[in-house]
């Protein structure tokens, strides 16, 4: 897990615990100052997620099974107005950003607990993709696709039985 930008220790702990718990692998946390300034699009005032994904892949530990990059900036991919996170199906690298998850950006009062919960959901969801899971239609499953923060709040921080067993099958191959 590579963090770009500072995250509270307590949040990092929670994320690390989630990932260990759901995927069952040991995990290493590295804080690093990735230079992502060249991926900034001044017109959109956002960062290109595809490039950041590649950059995170470059700096990740070659021995690591999967790498998750945690970010604080607003992400886009060329075709979409924004994304919360990105990963390749069965790929090695994923990223997730906390930027759009803040209540303040939707005219609501800040809510740190909710913010952390949303971020953890995005991270576990993206990691699910990295282990080969596709979107699930179950309204409360973590693998349900969420395009709005409100959608994130509707799902739970857990896999439905179907996704869980798909994941277990996939984990056997590692």
């Amino acid at each position: 897990m590579i963090s770009c930008g500072h995250f509270d220790n307590s949040l990092m702990d929670k994320i690390a615990t989630d990932l260990r718990l759901f995927f069952g692998f040991p995990l290493d946390i590295r804080e690093c100052s990735l230079d992502i300034s060249s991926f900034y699009d001044p017109g959109r005032r956002q960062y290109d997620a595809n490039h950041i994904l590649k950059k995170v892949a470059e700096v990740s530990d070659p021995l690591a099974l999967k790498t998750m990059g945690l970010l604080r900036v607003d992400l886009y991919i060329p075709i979409l107005t924004y994304i919360f996170g990105q990963s390749e199906l069965n790929g090695k690298t994923s990223i997730a950003s906390i930027h759009r998850l803040r209540n303040e950006l939707y005219g609501l009062d800040p809510d740190n607990r909710l913010l952390e919960e949303r971020f953890r959901k995005v991270i576990v969801h993206e990691m699910g993709h990295a282990f080969g899971l596709i979107h699930c239609l179950n309204p409360t499953c973590i693998m349900r696709s969420s395009t709005y923060v409100e959608d994130l709040d509707q799902k739970e921080l857990r896999f439905c039985n179907k996704c869980r067993s798909e994941l277990d099958k996939s984990l056997e191959n590692y």
């Binding site: 924004y82 303040e104 939707y106 005219g107 709005y148 409100e150």
Partner: peptide, 24 residues
């Protein structure tokens, strides 16, 4: 805004679109 959602810029602080409960 909870029920119907809002478009970005609908009021101060509304930086991004929000999906309303009826839509969800």
């Amino acid at each position: 805004s909870e029920l119907f959602g809002h478009e970005k810029g609908a009021f101060t602080g509304a930086t991004f679109n929000r999906k309303g409960r009826f839509e969800m």
